[in-house]
Amino acid sequence: MARRSEEPVFPNRLLPYLLLAPQLAITVIFFLWPAAKAVQQSVLREDPFGLKTQFVGLANFHRVLSDPHYLDAAILTVWLSMATIVLALLFGLLLAAAVDGVLKGSGIYETVLLVPYAVAPAIAGVLWFFLMNPSIGTLSGAIKALGYPWNHQIRGGDALALVVAASAWKQIPYNFLFFVAALRSIPKSLIEGAAIDGAGPWSRFIHITLPLISPTTFFLVVVNLIYAIFDTFGTIHATTAGGPGQSTTTLIYKVYNDGFVGLDLGGSSAQSVVLMAVVIVLTLLQFRYVEKKVTY
């Protein structure tokens, strides 16, 4: 591999640029240009008719960050992400641990448990929205029978729980797959050795399995976090539309809503820039994991 970086295989001068052209053209036109525009607009203020624009420095950022609704959306995003990640990881790990030692039928389980991966976040939202419908939902009916008057159309907490349930459900297969792969890579001799030493299944799981799969867990936390912040847009937009009130308005939903519905160009752009910073940090975190894997 070291040799490859020294000399090229093919001497062509123009060809590599032609090969890269489509990828770079799309990147520049549809990624860099809009991103630059977001940065530019975040320091401008435009009147609603788009007639006048003026430079306002960091005023948009100040306005956005001191807006209590923005703070609410940020806190909500954190809660929603944490709940989604914990649920999706827990169920994924539980099912992976169950399937890893099963003697018959693991192939069928692994296939069926994969299905929600194929379901779009928006569709997952619609499925759960129906399941939890206050008057005719199957699950909400069961919850009501237990004495809790479920209604996500009125109560914000219920709406948030609905979004979390749909989002976690959709993400279980992904975590399941990675946990299965991680569990399979643990040498059986380690587990058996511990068993001979008298460690029970629970103690073996806590003291041997969990530490060994921790790199996978860390990677999944980052991936799930990115998912919970960004991909839940479809789930929310197709079902609760950010409500009732602001109870399911996440940061992403707010960027969309302020920009497209509220037509607050500067404010929406400033929010975009803040989110870009968040993604950059998360992406670098994700790649740190990759780097670690390589040096193992």
Partner: peptide, 30 residues
């Protein structure tokens, strides 16, 4: 990127990498 050597190769690599950091969701309006 793998089979040729040319000026700007690393730049191209980084430009491609950057797309990971700019999902549509953060730049909806522009």
């Amino acid at each position: 990127i793998v089979y040729f050597r040319f000026p700007g190769r690393m730049l191209a690599f980084w430009l491609i990498f950057i797309t990971l950091m700019l999902p549509v969701e953060v730049r909806i309006l522009p």
